[in-house]
C-alpha cells in the first residue's frame, strides 16, 4: 500500500492549476452561455432551458448523432477483428518483429490532417491510386459527389489510421501470455482455434476492452480527418458531432445552442470516461502486465 501523505497535494498543485485554467473556467463559461441568449456582449437575456429544448429537438443534431453512432459502431466492427487478426499474425521475436512493429505503427504517428490529405490524394479518380484503380474496375467512384462513397472512404481512412492501435494493444497482451500455457495446449493436442478461443482470447479480454473503449471514444470525437477529406459533405453525409458543433459555434456563431450542445456532448463523454476508468482499474488490478509491455 502507498503511504498516506497529504503534502502530495503540493506536488500536484501545478497540474491542477494548469488544467483548471484551461478546463474549469471554460466549462463554467459554457454553462453560462447555455442558459442565455447572447445578442451582443452587452445585451444578453436569460432564457432558462430553452436552448437545451431546441438542441434536443434539433433534427440536424439527431441526424449527426445517429451518423456518429453508426460510424463509431462500424469502426469497432471492422477494427477490432482486424486488429486481433493482425496481432496474431505479427512475428513475435527478432528483427522481423521490430520491422513489422514500426511499419504497422507508422499510420498512428502521422498528423491527423495529413491523414486526411493522404486519403484525399489517394482517393481522387484523376490522380490517386485507389480512385483510379476503382474507376478502372468500372466503379463510378467519387468521394466528393456520392454520399455512400464518402462514407466508405472516411471509414476506410479510419480503419487505416487506427487499426494499428488495436493491433499493438493486442500484440502487447499476447506477449504477456506465459509459454507454459501454449505447451500445455500442445500436449493436449489442442487445435489452433481452440488455443485462440480458450487461451488467447480470455487473456486478451482486458486489453480488448480498453481498445474497444478507446476506439469508441476517439471515433466519437473525430474531427480533423473528415474535415480535410470531405469537409462533412456531400450535403452533410459525413458531418459528425464535432463537426456539427464547430459549424454552429464558429461558423454561425450561435453561442447559446452551441454551448447547450457542448454540455450534452460533455455529459456523454463523461459517462464513457467513467466506464473506461473503472475498467482500467479492474484490469489494472487483475493483471498489471496486460497492456504494459510493448
Amino acid at each position: 500500500m502507498k503511504p498516506v501523505n497529504q503534502k502530495a497535494w503540493l506536488l500536484i498543485l501545478p497540474v491542477v492549476l494548469c488544467v483548471a485554467f484551461s478546463a474549469i473556467l471554460p466549462l463554467m463559461t459554457v454553462v453560462n452561455y447555455s442558459v442565455q441568449d447572447i445578442i451582443s456582449p452587452e445585451r444578453r437575456v436569460f432564457v432558462g432551458t430553452e436552448w437545451f429544448k431546441s438542441v434536443m429537438r434539433d433534427e440536424d443534431l439527431q441526424g449527426a448523432l445517429l451518423r456518429q453512432m453508426t460510424f463509431s459502431l462500424a469502426v469497432l466492427l471492422v477494427e477490432i477483428p482486424l486488429g486481433i487478426a493482425l496481432a496474431l499474425s505479427m512475428p513475435a521475436k527478432g528483427w522481423k518483429s521490430s520491422a513489422v512493429l514500426v511499419l504497422v505503427a507508422i499510420s498512428l504517428l502521422i498528423p491527423w490532417n495529413v491523414v486526411g490529405t493522404i486519403w484525399q490524394i489517394f482517393g481522387r479518380v484523376d490522380i490517386g491510386l485507389m480512385g483510379a484503380a476503382l474507376a478502372a474496375l468500372g466503379f463510378d467512384y467519387s468521394y466528393t459527389g456520392n454520399a455512400s462513397d464518402a462514407w466508405f472512404t472516411v471509414l476506410l481512412m479510419d480503419v487505416w489510421h487506427w487499426t494499428p492501435l488495436v493491433a499493438l494493444l493486442c500484440f502487447a497482451g499476447l506477449r504477456a501470455i506465459p509459454d507454459a500455457y501454449y505447451q500445455a495446449a500442445s500436449i493436449d493436442g489442442a487445435s489452433k482455434f481452440a488455443v485462440f478461443r480458450y487461451i488467447q482470447l480470455p487473456k486478451l479480454r482486458g486489453v480488448l476492452m480498453i481498445a474497444v473503449l478507446l476506439r469508441f471514444m476517439d471515433s466519437f470525437m473525430i474531427y480533423t480527418e473528415p474535415f480535410v477529406l470531405t469537409g462533412g459533405g456531400p450535403g452533410n453525409a459525413t458531418t459528425f458531432l464535432s463537426q456539427y458543433l464547430t459549424q454552429k459555434a464558429v461558423g454561425q456563431f450561435d453561442l447559446g445552442p452551441a454551448a447547450a450542445f457542448s454540455l450534452i456532448y460533455f455529459l456523454i463523454i463523461l459517462l464513457l470516461c467513467f466506464i473506461l476508468y473503472n475498467w482500467m482499474q479492474r484490469v489494472g488490478t487483475a493483471d498489471k502486465t496486460g497492456a504494459g509491455h510493448g
Partner: peptide
C-alpha cells in the same frame, strides 16, 4: 484529468 484528455476540443472552443 482523464476526462480532460477525452473531451473533444470542440466543446471548449467557444470559451477559449
Amino acid at each position: 484529468l482523464l476526462t480532460n484528455r477525452m473531451t473533444p476540443p470542440a466543446v471548449f472552443l467557444l470559451p477559449f
